[in-house]
Protein backbone atom coordinates (compact mmCIF):
# COMPACT_ATOMS: atom_id res chain seq x y z
CA UNK A 1 0.00 0.00 0.00
CA UNK A 2 2.72 2.43 1.05
CA UNK A 3 4.70 1.29 -1.97
CA UNK A 4 1.73 1.91 -4.22
CA UNK A 5 1.27 5.48 -2.94
CA UNK A 6 5.00 6.16 -3.15
CA UNK A 7 5.03 4.97 -6.74
CA UNK A 8 2.12 7.22 -7.65
CA UNK A 9 3.75 10.20 -5.94
CA UNK A 10 6.97 9.72 -7.88
CA UNK A 11 5.00 9.51 -11.11
CA UNK A 12 3.18 12.71 -10.18
CA UNK A 13 6.47 14.53 -9.69
CA UNK A 14 7.51 13.59 -13.20
CA UNK A 15 4.21 14.76 -14.65
CA UNK A 16 4.59 18.10 -12.87
CA UNK A 17 8.16 18.45 -14.14
CA UNK A 18 7.01 17.84 -17.70
CA UNK A 19 4.28 20.46 -17.40
CA UNK A 20 6.66 22.91 -15.78
CA UNK A 21 8.95 22.40 -18.74
CA UNK A 22 6.10 23.19 -21.14
CA UNK A 23 5.18 26.29 -19.19
CA UNK A 24 8.80 27.36 -19.16
CA UNK A 25 9.18 26.87 -22.90
CA UNK A 26 6.04 28.92 -23.42
CA UNK A 27 7.47 31.73 -21.36
CA UNK A 28 10.90 31.57 -22.86
CA UNK A 29 10.27 30.85 -26.52
CA UNK A 30 6.87 32.29 -27.48
CA UNK A 31 8.11 35.70 -28.43
CA UNK A 32 10.98 37.49 -26.74
CA UNK A 33 10.06 38.27 -23.13
CA UNK A 34 12.07 41.48 -23.19
CA UNK A 35 10.24 43.03 -26.12
CA UNK A 36 6.96 42.05 -24.47
CA UNK A 37 7.95 43.71 -21.19
CA UNK A 38 9.48 46.87 -22.58
CA UNK A 39 8.09 49.55 -24.79
CA UNK A 40 9.36 50.83 -28.12
CA UNK A 41 11.24 53.68 -26.46
CA UNK A 42 13.45 51.46 -24.29
CA UNK A 43 17.02 51.63 -25.55
CA UNK A 44 18.86 48.55 -26.77
CA UNK A 45 21.38 48.98 -23.95
CA UNK A 46 18.63 49.01 -21.39
CA UNK A 47 17.09 45.95 -22.97
CA UNK A 48 20.44 44.21 -22.81
CA UNK A 49 20.84 45.20 -19.14
CA UNK A 50 17.36 43.85 -18.35
CA UNK A 51 18.14 40.64 -20.19
CA UNK A 52 21.25 40.18 -18.07
CA UNK A 53 19.43 41.05 -14.82
CA UNK A 54 16.63 38.57 -15.51
CA UNK A 55 19.19 35.86 -16.29
CA UNK A 56 17.91 35.34 -19.82
CA UNK A 57 21.46 34.97 -21.09
CA UNK A 58 22.17 31.99 -18.85
CA UNK A 59 22.20 28.43 -20.12
CA UNK A 60 18.91 26.75 -20.86
CA UNK A 61 19.25 24.17 -18.07
CA UNK A 62 20.11 26.83 -15.51
CA UNK A 63 17.14 28.93 -16.52
CA UNK A 64 14.80 25.96 -16.24
CA UNK A 65 16.22 25.04 -12.84
CA UNK A 66 15.73 28.61 -11.66
CA UNK A 67 12.18 28.65 -13.04
CA UNK A 68 11.30 25.41 -11.24
CA UNK A 69 12.96 26.55 -8.06
CA UNK A 70 11.00 29.81 -8.07
CA UNK A 71 7.79 27.88 -8.67
CA UNK A 72 8.49 25.65 -5.69
CA UNK A 73 9.13 28.69 -3.52
CA UNK A 74 5.78 30.08 -4.62
CA UNK A 75 7.34 32.82 -6.70
CA UNK A 76 5.39 32.73 -9.95
CA UNK A 77 6.71 35.93 -11.44
CA UNK A 78 4.82 39.03 -12.51
CA UNK A 79 2.04 39.59 -14.99
CA UNK A 80 2.96 41.61 -18.11
CA UNK A 81 -0.48 43.15 -18.15
CA UNK A 82 -1.21 44.20 -14.58
CA UNK A 83 2.35 44.18 -13.17
CA UNK A 84 0.91 42.25 -10.20
CA UNK A 85 2.50 39.05 -8.83
CA UNK A 86 0.92 36.15 -10.72
CA UNK A 87 0.61 34.13 -7.50
CA UNK A 88 -1.65 36.79 -6.04
CA UNK A 89 -3.80 37.00 -9.17
CA UNK A 90 -4.30 33.24 -9.33
CA UNK A 91 -4.92 32.97 -5.61
CA UNK A 92 -7.79 35.46 -5.75
CA UNK A 93 -9.32 33.60 -8.70
CA UNK A 94 -8.95 30.01 -7.49
CA UNK A 95 -11.83 30.00 -4.96
CA UNK A 96 -14.35 31.11 -7.60
CA UNK A 97 -13.37 28.38 -10.07
CA UNK A 98 -13.06 25.66 -7.45
CA UNK A 99 -16.43 26.43 -5.92
CA UNK A 100 -18.05 26.51 -9.32
CA UNK A 101 -16.39 23.22 -10.29
CA UNK A 102 -17.28 21.45 -7.05
CA UNK A 103 -20.93 22.51 -7.22
CA UNK A 104 -21.09 21.44 -10.88
CA UNK A 105 -19.56 18.10 -9.91
CA UNK A 106 -22.03 17.61 -7.06
CA UNK A 107 -24.97 18.42 -9.33
CA UNK A 108 -23.73 15.93 -11.90
CA UNK A 109 -23.24 13.23 -9.24
CA UNK A 110 -26.47 13.72 -7.32
CA UNK A 111 -28.55 13.84 -10.47
CA UNK A 112 -26.45 11.65 -12.77
CA UNK A 113 -25.96 8.60 -10.55
CA UNK A 114 -29.61 8.15 -9.48
CA UNK A 115 -30.76 8.84 -13.04
CA UNK A 116 -28.25 6.28 -14.33
CA UNK A 117 -29.44 3.67 -11.84
CA UNK A 118 -33.07 4.36 -12.64
CA UNK A 119 -32.62 4.16 -16.40
CA UNK A 120 -30.61 0.96 -16.01
CA UNK A 121 -33.24 -0.76 -13.92
CA UNK A 122 -36.17 0.25 -16.12
CA UNK A 123 -34.54 0.17 -19.55
CA UNK A 124 -37.85 0.18 -21.40
CA UNK A 125 -39.83 2.62 -19.26
CA UNK A 126 -41.27 5.83 -20.68
CA UNK A 127 -39.38 7.96 -18.15
CA UNK A 128 -36.13 6.28 -19.18
CA UNK A 129 -36.64 7.06 -22.84
CA UNK A 130 -37.55 10.64 -21.99
CA UNK A 131 -34.45 11.08 -19.81
CA UNK A 132 -32.19 9.59 -22.46
CA UNK A 133 -33.65 11.85 -25.14
CA UNK A 134 -33.38 14.95 -22.99
CA UNK A 135 -29.78 14.29 -22.06
CA UNK A 136 -28.89 13.58 -25.66
CA UNK A 137 -30.20 17.04 -26.54
CA UNK A 138 -28.25 18.35 -23.52
CA UNK A 139 -24.89 17.15 -24.81
CA UNK A 140 -25.57 18.06 -28.41
CA UNK A 141 -25.96 21.75 -27.63
CA UNK A 142 -22.71 23.58 -26.91
CA UNK A 143 -22.19 24.79 -23.36
CA UNK A 144 -22.36 28.48 -24.24
CA UNK A 145 -25.76 28.08 -25.90
CA UNK A 146 -27.11 26.36 -22.81
CA UNK A 147 -25.69 29.14 -20.68
CA UNK A 148 -27.21 31.85 -22.84
CA UNK A 149 -30.57 30.08 -22.91
CA UNK A 150 -30.55 29.74 -19.13
CA UNK A 151 -29.67 33.44 -18.76
CA UNK A 152 -32.43 34.42 -21.15
CA UNK A 153 -35.04 32.28 -19.44
CA UNK A 154 -34.27 32.45 -15.71
CA UNK A 155 -32.39 35.72 -15.69
CA UNK A 156 -34.11 37.93 -18.22
CA UNK A 157 -37.65 36.58 -18.74
CA UNK A 158 -38.41 35.33 -15.26
CA UNK A 159 -35.88 37.49 -13.48
CA UNK A 160 -35.38 34.87 -10.77
CA UNK A 161 -31.64 34.59 -10.78
CA UNK A 162 -28.70 36.93 -11.40
CA UNK A 163 -27.02 36.53 -14.77
CA UNK A 164 -23.40 37.44 -14.02
CA UNK A 165 -20.79 37.68 -11.30
CA UNK A 166 -20.56 35.89 -7.99
CA UNK A 167 -23.18 37.84 -6.03
CA UNK A 168 -22.52 38.15 -2.32
CA UNK A 169 -19.26 36.69 -1.16
CA UNK A 170 -17.72 36.37 2.27
CA UNK A 171 -13.99 36.36 3.02
CA UNK A 172 -12.80 33.44 5.11
CA UNK A 173 -9.11 34.02 5.65
CA UNK A 174 -7.75 34.26 2.11
CA UNK A 175 -10.69 32.37 0.64
CA UNK A 176 -13.54 34.28 -0.89
CA UNK A 177 -16.61 32.04 -0.74
CA UNK A 178 -20.13 32.34 -2.11
CA UNK A 179 -21.38 29.44 -0.02
CA UNK A 180 -22.32 31.58 2.97
CA UNK A 181 -24.81 34.02 1.47
CA UNK A 182 -28.14 33.52 -0.25
CA UNK A 183 -27.03 35.87 -3.02
CA UNK A 184 -23.89 33.85 -3.54
CA UNK A 185 -25.87 30.66 -3.97
CA UNK A 186 -28.34 32.32 -6.32
CA UNK A 187 -25.51 33.51 -8.53
CA UNK A 188 -23.93 30.06 -8.44
CA UNK A 189 -26.90 28.00 -9.65
CA UNK A 190 -26.98 28.88 -13.34
CA UNK A 191 -23.25 28.67 -14.11
CA UNK A 192 -22.83 25.50 -12.04
CA UNK A 193 -25.68 23.84 -13.86
CA UNK A 194 -24.34 24.94 -17.23
CA UNK A 195 -20.91 23.59 -16.38
CA UNK A 196 -22.27 20.36 -14.86
CA UNK A 197 -24.76 19.40 -17.55
CA UNK A 198 -22.26 17.69 -19.81
CA UNK A 199 -20.68 15.75 -17.00
CA UNK A 200 -24.15 14.89 -15.71
CA UNK A 201 -25.03 13.25 -18.99
CA UNK A 202 -21.76 11.44 -19.16
CA UNK A 203 -22.05 10.16 -15.58
CA UNK A 204 -25.60 9.06 -16.17
CA UNK A 205 -24.87 7.17 -19.35
CA UNK A 206 -21.80 5.56 -17.88
CA UNK A 207 -23.59 4.50 -14.70
CA UNK A 208 -26.41 3.17 -16.82
CA UNK A 209 -24.16 1.11 -19.08
CA UNK A 210 -22.07 -0.24 -16.20
CA UNK A 211 -25.11 -0.97 -14.08
CA UNK A 212 -26.80 -2.92 -16.86
CA UNK A 213 -23.61 -4.91 -17.29
CA UNK A 214 -23.36 -5.63 -13.56
CA UNK A 215 -27.03 -6.60 -13.33
CA UNK A 216 -26.34 -9.39 -15.80
CA UNK A 217 -23.41 -10.75 -13.79
CA UNK A 218 -23.45 -14.07 -12.01
CA UNK A 219 -23.18 -12.65 -8.53
CA UNK A 220 -26.26 -10.49 -9.01
CA UNK A 221 -28.16 -13.46 -10.38
CA UNK A 222 -26.98 -15.50 -7.42
CA UNK A 223 -27.97 -12.77 -4.96
CA UNK A 224 -31.40 -12.62 -6.62
CA UNK A 225 -31.70 -16.39 -6.43
CA UNK A 226 -31.13 -16.34 -2.70
CA UNK A 227 -33.70 -13.64 -2.14
CA UNK A 228 -31.56 -10.66 -1.13
CA UNK A 229 -33.99 -7.71 -0.87
CA UNK A 230 -34.17 -5.78 -4.13
CA UNK A 231 -33.20 -2.42 -2.64
CA UNK A 232 -30.08 -3.94 -1.14
CA UNK A 233 -29.37 -5.78 -4.36
CA UNK A 234 -29.44 -2.60 -6.40
CA UNK A 235 -27.68 -0.22 -4.09
CA UNK A 236 -25.31 -2.40 -2.09
CA UNK A 237 -24.36 -5.13 -4.54
CA UNK A 238 -24.78 -3.58 -7.96
CA UNK A 239 -23.99 0.11 -7.43
CA UNK A 240 -20.68 -0.49 -5.64
CA UNK A 241 -19.49 -2.68 -8.49
CA UNK A 242 -20.65 -0.06 -10.95
CA UNK A 243 -18.62 2.68 -9.32
CA UNK A 244 -15.12 1.34 -10.01
CA UNK A 245 -14.97 2.35 -13.69
CA UNK A 246 -17.29 5.31 -13.17
CA UNK A 247 -14.90 6.89 -10.67
CA UNK A 248 -12.10 7.02 -13.21
CA UNK A 249 -14.16 8.95 -15.68
CA UNK A 250 -15.64 11.24 -13.04
CA UNK A 251 -12.12 11.98 -11.80
CA UNK A 252 -10.78 12.75 -15.26
CA UNK A 253 -13.85 14.82 -16.04
CA UNK A 254 -13.53 16.84 -12.85
CA UNK A 255 -10.06 17.85 -13.87
CA UNK A 256 -11.60 18.80 -17.20
CA UNK A 257 -14.38 20.78 -15.58
CA UNK A 258 -11.86 22.87 -13.67
CA UNK A 259 -9.65 23.31 -16.69
CA UNK A 260 -12.31 24.03 -19.25
CA UNK A 261 -14.68 26.13 -17.21
CA UNK A 262 -13.40 28.91 -19.45
CA UNK A 263 -16.50 29.05 -21.64
CA UNK A 264 -18.96 29.00 -18.76
CA UNK A 265 -16.98 31.58 -16.84
CA UNK A 266 -16.91 33.82 -19.85
CA UNK A 267 -20.67 33.52 -20.51
CA UNK A 268 -21.53 34.32 -16.88
CA UNK A 269 -18.63 36.75 -16.32
CA UNK A 270 -17.59 34.50 -13.44
CA UNK A 271 -14.39 35.93 -11.96
CA UNK A 272 -12.49 32.63 -11.90
CA UNK A 273 -9.27 31.33 -13.39
CA UNK A 274 -10.90 30.58 -16.73
CA UNK A 275 -11.83 34.21 -17.23
CA UNK A 276 -8.36 35.25 -16.10
CA UNK A 277 -6.86 32.86 -18.64
CA UNK A 278 -9.04 34.27 -21.39
CA UNK A 279 -7.98 37.82 -20.53
CA UNK A 280 -4.35 36.71 -20.44
CA UNK A 281 -4.61 35.23 -23.90
CA UNK A 282 -6.09 38.44 -25.22
CA UNK A 283 -3.12 40.43 -23.90
CA UNK A 284 -0.51 37.71 -24.56
CA UNK A 285 0.19 37.67 -20.83
CA UNK A 286 2.53 34.69 -20.98
CA UNK A 287 3.59 34.41 -17.33
CA UNK A 288 -0.05 34.07 -16.27
CA UNK A 289 -0.74 31.52 -18.99
CA UNK A 290 2.27 29.46 -17.92
CA UNK A 291 1.26 29.46 -14.30
CA UNK A 292 -2.31 28.61 -15.23
CA UNK A 293 -0.98 25.59 -17.09
CA UNK A 294 0.98 24.43 -14.05
CA UNK A 295 -1.91 24.97 -11.63
CA UNK A 296 -4.36 23.04 -13.81
CA UNK A 297 -1.88 20.19 -14.23
CA UNK A 298 -1.52 20.13 -10.48
CA UNK A 299 -5.29 19.73 -10.13
CA UNK A 300 -5.29 16.85 -12.59
CA UNK A 301 -2.49 15.11 -10.73
CA UNK A 302 -4.18 15.52 -7.36
CA UNK A 303 -7.57 14.35 -8.67
CA UNK A 304 -6.01 11.29 -10.26
CA UNK A 305 -4.19 10.46 -7.08
CA UNK A 306 -7.48 10.64 -5.21
CA UNK A 307 -9.12 8.41 -7.83
CA UNK A 308 -6.37 5.82 -7.38
CA UNK A 309 -6.86 5.85 -3.64
CA UNK A 310 -10.63 5.56 -4.05
CA UNK A 311 -10.12 2.45 -6.17
CA UNK A 312 -8.24 0.82 -3.37
CA UNK A 313 -10.89 1.88 -0.88
CA UNK A 314 -13.69 0.42 -2.99
CA UNK A 315 -12.11 -2.71 -4.39
CA UNK A 316 -10.55 -5.11 -1.87
CA UNK A 317 -8.87 -7.00 -4.71
CA UNK A 318 -6.45 -4.11 -5.15
CA UNK A 319 -5.33 -4.21 -1.55
CA UNK A 320 -2.09 -6.04 -1.49
CA UNK A 321 -1.92 -7.86 1.84
CA UNK A 322 -3.58 -11.12 0.89
CA UNK A 323 -4.63 -13.75 3.37
CA UNK A 324 -4.07 -16.72 1.12
Amino acid sequence: MAYFIAKRLVQSVFVMLAVAFLAFSLFRFVGDPITQMTGVETSVADQERLREELGLNDSFALQFARFTGDMLKGDFGFSYRTRQPVAEMIATRIPATLELGVVALLISLFVGIPAGVYTALRPRGFATQAILMATLVGVSIPTFVIGIMLIFFFGVQLGWLPTFGRGGTVKLGGWETSFLTVDGWRALILPAFTLGVYQLTLTMRLVRAEMMEVMRSDYIRFATARGVPMRRLYFRHALANTMVPVITIIGLQFGGVIAFSIVTESVFQWPGMGLLFLESIRFVDIPVMGVYLVVIAFFFVVVNLIVDLLYVAIDPRLRIRDVS
Binding site: D218, Y219, H237, N241, I314, R317
Partner: peptide, 8 residues
Amino acid sequence: QTSLNPLM
Protein backbone atom coordinates in the same frame (compact mmCIF):
# COMPACT_ATOMS: atom_id res chain seq x y z
CA GLN B 1 -15.11 -17.17 -9.43
CA THR B 2 -17.96 -14.97 -10.55
CA SER B 3 -20.90 -15.92 -8.35
CA LEU B 4 -19.78 -13.99 -5.28
CA ASN B 5 -19.83 -10.21 -5.02
CA PRO B 6 -16.12 -9.31 -5.12
CA LEU B 7 -16.56 -6.15 -3.05
CA MET B 8 -18.27 -7.67 -0.02
